[in-house]
Every structure is written in C-alpha cells, then in structure tokens.
C-alpha cells in the first residue's frame, strides 16, 4: 500500500506546481492526506524541492492539453488569452484525466459549455468540433440505421465565420438558428446547410 500512496501523492504533485510549493512550505499539512512511510515522505519532500520538478508539471499540462487541442483546435483559439485560466480551472476540477482524445475532449467541452461565462459562439464551435471528430472517427464503420457517420447540428452562428474568427474574437449570431449536416460517409467530410432550423 505504501507504494500506491507514494504514487498517488507524486501524481498530485506533478499535476500542480501549487501543491509542490505547499509541500515545500508546509509538508506536514500538504502530505497529511496520504498514508506514507517515512522514506516515501522524505522522497516526496526531496522531489517537491527539486527544481527539475517544474518540468514534470509542465509536461503534465502539455500532455493534458494535447487531446483537447487535437479535437478542439478552433475552440482553443477562440478562447484566446482566456485559454490558460480555463485550463487551470479544468485541470484543478477534473483530475480524472485520460489521454483518450475523444473522451477527454468531450468531457472538457461539456464542462466548458456548463460554465456561465461560456458564450453561445463558443458553445456552437465546441459542438461543431466534437461532431466533426465523432463522424470522422466513425468514417470506416459500415452503414446502419442510426449512422454514426452523419450528424445534424442546430447552430446559432455561421460556421464559416466561426472558423475564420481571429483569436479571441467572436462573430455575431445569425438572425435565426440553422441546421448543419455533417456527413463523413465519403472520402471527405461534407458540410451541408439543411434549412433554417425554424423553417
């Protein structure tokens, strides 16, 4: 059990430079929640004080960002300078990270869409990029009734304007919602504007 507790504490240190600093400052308090042997405790203190620990913290952040950026690149761009703060909040609140790209991106998108300060434009872009990932991932699947290679989204923004938006800038909403169909059954992803959603 002591190795498991050592690894749990080390995982928490790697996930948070703030926690590393707390272990350096108040080791008794910061490590109180782990059942550690004296040697494991001494090792963690040494590692938290090792300047090279910063690289582990950086890599943790980069590795958690990679799946999000791979699936949701335009959403990350639309967040602009807010991205760093949003990631801090997400990583702190959602510790059960996974490197399964689709799952991690979907969890992040749900978390972000539920925030009160997430704009309708960003919600549209998140939904669009997740849907793209889903239909493209299903591209090689055989045809069936509920075809995962096709999906229809109701959007309040012109998708072309959203994709072309400069970093941190959002286009105005459309006068009325539209339905956009994504179809990955052929060689390339096809986007078709169906009809105004309220027609």
């Amino acid at each position: 059990m002591s190795l498991a507790e050592f690894q749990r504490a080390l995982g928490d240190l790697i996930a948070s430079p703030v926690r590393c600093a707390k272990v350096r400052r108040l080791p008794g308090l910061a490590l109180a929640g782990y059942a550690l042997t004296a040697r494991a405790r001494e090792r963690l203190l040494g590692m938290a004080g090792d300047p090279r620990m910063a690289m582990n913290c950086t890599l943790y952040r980069v590795n958690r960002l990679i799946p999000l950026h791979a699936v949701l690149p335009r959403s990350c761009r639309l967040l602009g300078s807010r991205l760093g703060g949003v990631l801090d909040a997400y990583f702190a609140g959602e510790r059960d990270g996974t490197l399964q790209f689709g799952m991690e991106a979907s969890r992040f998108a749900q978390w972000l869409a539920a925030r009160h300060d997430t704009t309708p434009a960003l919600r549209d872009l998140l939904a669009f990029e997740l849907a793209c990932h889903a239909v493209i991932s299903a591209a090689g699947e055989p045809e069936r009734g509920d075809d995962p290679r096709r999906r229809t989204l109701a959007l309040r923004h012109d998708i072309g304007a959203l994709l072309a938006a400069a970093e941190g800038e959002e286009p105005p909403p459309l006068p009325a919602p539209v339905l956009l169909e994504l179809d990955a059954r052929g060689d390339a992803l096809v986007l078709t504007l169906v009809e105004p959603a309220n027609a």
Partner: peptide, 8 residues
Amino acid sequence: HHAGLALP
C-alpha cells in the same frame, strides 16, 4: 486518473 506522464 491518468498521471499525465510516466511517474518516476
């Protein structure tokens, strides 16, 4: 929980 990288 994925540790984000291989733990030492």
